[in-house]
Design a protein around this nucleic acid. Structure first.
Lengths: 164, 164
DNA sequence: AAAAACCCTTGAGTGGCTCCAAGGTCAACC
DNA sequence: GGTTGACCTTGGAGCCACTCAAGGGTTTTT
């Protein structure tokens, strides 16, 4: 059974995991990649976390919930540690994240349309040879127009990074 | 300079890559993981692809453009190879993909709102200590309400897989 | 003949975890 | 005193879909 920490604000990894809802392995991973400060150790080698770690971990998870990559979170943490730095970089960082999210949104919206169109091509119950979906998909292999895809995926004009 | 194939419909990997717009490494990768049939080899070991490979590769890329995972594409290819199978599985496969895309769309839409709200918190030009964005982010670490996030990322009730 | 372009294989790296094996530590119960 | 079981440790492998690099061989162009 999990017993809550004796010393106030000091806990082992399991308790920190329970309190934050972050997997134990993930916490150790954040430490390994330098996002979370290495905690003190008990004589037997167990990690003991203080309130600062709880705060740091919560910060990280909040940023992750905003889908920021760990590298950007690292940069944000550097700002937290150096409050005298220029704030403009923070703005740019958020803007970049927003731009990424919006780009992905756009492509996903197109994707949904395409899949929905494809889905109308066939209702179940017969044999694969007569499946409209499969036919559409194969048709694309011949470079023909298809319901699911407005523009053939072959020879995409010049967009190298279609997916982020 | 790239010379188009001598024998009609037979080409080396570079030509296949150019024709389809798929990176050479990616083509070899598809072969390695069993999506693309191993092509014949010239005496010196070069891969030579026929029209069937071109078709197969186009099929794969079309499905990838619909963001399907390679494992599902593999299953679809099995249907192409066995046209007597029941079509219902294909429908379920597309439905599952559509559901995935829609779920991701929903979470991304929420994300955009949150980031946009966060962005309004600060305009650049001052010091990080006064940055509203940073303040919001840190506030979340204390479990306080924040503009960017409607519900605190701590202790998510019971949803293990928040991100797919 | 030399240089450029093409091809081969193997192996490692990316992000953000997640899981596993093999073991050490600590409290409670019989 | 022994055993269970929860907790902790490390290191390494696995996931996806590529992407890149090293180090070599072959073909084509200059």
């Amino acid at each position: 059974m999990m017993v809550l920490s004796g010393k106030v604000g000091s806990m082992r990894i399991g308790e920190l995991s329970q309190v934050t809802g972050v997997d134990i392995e993930t916490i150790r991973y954040y430490e390994k990649v330098g996002l979370l400060l290495p905690p003190a150790r008990t004589p037997n080698g167990y990690r003991t976390y203080g309130p600062g770690h709880l705060e740091g971990l919560a910060f990280i998870r909040h940023c992750r919930a905003l889908d920021m990559p760990l590298a950007e979170i690292k940069r944000l943490l550097a700002f937290v540690a150096h409050p005298e730095a220029d704030c403009g970089d923070i703005n740019r960082l958020i803007d970049a994240q927003l731009a990424r999210v919006r780009a992905r949104l756009q492509s996903l919206r197109a994707l949904e349309k395409q899949l929905a169109a494809l889905r109308t091509r066939c209702d179940a119950g017969h044999v694969a040879a007569e499946c409209g979906i499969l036919h559409e998909l194969v048709a694309a292999a011949h470079g023909e127009a298809c319901a699911c895809h407005p523009v053939s995926p072959l020879l995409p004009p010049k967009n190298k990074a279609s997916r982020n």
